[in-house]
Design a binder for these strands. Structure first.
Lengths: 261, 261
DNA sequence: AATTAAATTTCGCCT
DNA sequence: AGGCGAAGTTTAATT
């Protein structure tokens, strides 16, 4: 556990201390967190008014603002990053005014009672990755081969050690052999060449025509040209739809498929 | 100022106390707020992994969950209302597990260091009102044409892609054709010219006199002169009164109007 | 730079 | 209950 980090917490602060902390947070680009009784005025593309009630206000170092009520996943009022903030104190009411030049918008939050206020210095270098695993994509194709094309029937599959590449072998509607290479992200030139090598290897053994399909969420124009030159095909395969297909798939049957191979 | 409300604030709590407070918040349907070092796993429609870093976690009484990083207006991980929560303690790591049956989703948040934890009881009955979008103004005029002028009868309406402009066509007391252009904010010169172009187009088709009314909350002196030059009229239209008119309008009748056109 | 498409979109209204 | 459309949508990608 790391040593305790420097941050400020005020419980039931008076308005003067509250404003001081808010000013500090904003000027030093820290995270400001306030829980208390407030009302909010928004004006910009539309207008809104929020009558008094207890909410949570968050202001981040990039100049984004959030006001959260006691329920609901969405903020009741907000402002994307890039705001400039002003604070004002008037008759023990703390006003925090967020102005966004870009969209000509402004949000004013007025606190007349603060339960909790914190000025945090959040250090966050952690990477965020949203993914569909190669295995997920493979499972999706196996459970719903039409994702590749109508009439496609998988015969076997092979998991490769290289991350991001998984092949599925099968036959198409006409009975022609098909090699499918899956890629989690945008198809690269490498992927095209790799698929080409597989195709060549399979052709040499099978001694008959083999189709090669590179299935990925997207492909660049240049890679598309490479594919065409190599006589290969591209099939757009949306990771999201793979996920959907997976969920809708008959899990039992799918697991059986995996077990029996 | 109201008396201080009961709530709990923990600064640098140990994991045992942290879990205890989290359990209390969830079971008693309070708002849970944690700032600390965490990592997050999400699995559902997609999958995601968030490497360790310092963030803010909010769990609301309706079972919604938010994980906010130090920047960005949007949460990095979230879950809409309706989650069921489980907490677990393992080697001083607090795990909060949110499960949503409806979508078959789950979010796991792991804290190994907590700077601040609060259990709040937010009381919020304040009304939120969003008012006067262009469409609102249009609906208001359609439901209460007298907002434009006495005896005005709308015939049809048209929604434009340009933001802020909505037209209503109708006839006045004398049976003369009227084109109304609505603007959410102060009428601009552009609006005047735009209306003028409409009028010209309508005149060309209808081959008879057409009145043009620019309806907006306010108008500048210069724009007023432009209007006069173009032979057009200005009608002050208070957004607030539009909102009121809308609320008071017979919703059924309004929807019928929209259907029959 | 502008336009289009996607989002773990969510949410509300209508059929 | 399912489907469609809007959102103060925002944000990323593509032309």
């Amino acid at each position: 556990m790391a040593a305790n980090k420097p941050f400020k917490v005020l419980v039931n602060p008076n308005s003067t201390d509250a404003e001081k902390a808010a000013k500090e947070a904003v000027s030093k680009h820290k995270t400001l967190l306030i829980a208390g009784n407030c009302w909010v005025h928004y004006s910009g593309r539309a207008k809104s008014k929020l009558e008094p009630g207890e909410r949570i206000l968050i202001i981040k170092k990039d100049g984004s603002l959030l006001v959260h009520r006691s329920t609901g996943y969405e903020p009741v009022n907000w402002q994307p990053s890039g705001c400039i903030f002003h604070t004002k104190l008037k008759e023990n009411v703390l006003e925090i005014h967020a102005v966004r030049q870009k969209q000509q918008e402004s949000v004013r939050v007025f606190f007349d009672n603060i339960q909790l206020e914190a000025v945090l210095d959040l250090v966050d270098e952690g990477e965020f990755s949203l993914y569909v695993t190669e295995e997920d994509m493979q499972k999706a194709v196996l459970s719903k081969p039409a994702l590749i094309e109508d009439g496609f029937r998988p015969i076997s599959y092979e998991k490769k050690t290289e991350p991001g590449f998984v092949d599925v072998y099968g036959v198409d509607k006409a009975g022609k052999l098909v090699v499918v290479e899956l890629k989690r992200k945008t198809a690269s030139k490498d992927a095209a060449f790799q698929l080409s090598r597989y195709i060549d290897a399979v052709k040499a053994r099978a001694d008959r025509e083999v189709r090669g399909i590179l299935a990925a969420p997207s492909i660049g124009k240049d890679v598309q040209r490479v594919l065409a030159t190599l006589g290969l095909e591209f099939k757009r395969l949306d990771p999201k739809r793979c996920g959907e297909a997976l969920r809708k798939a008959d899990t039992k049957r799918l697991s059986e498929f995996f077990n029996e191979t």
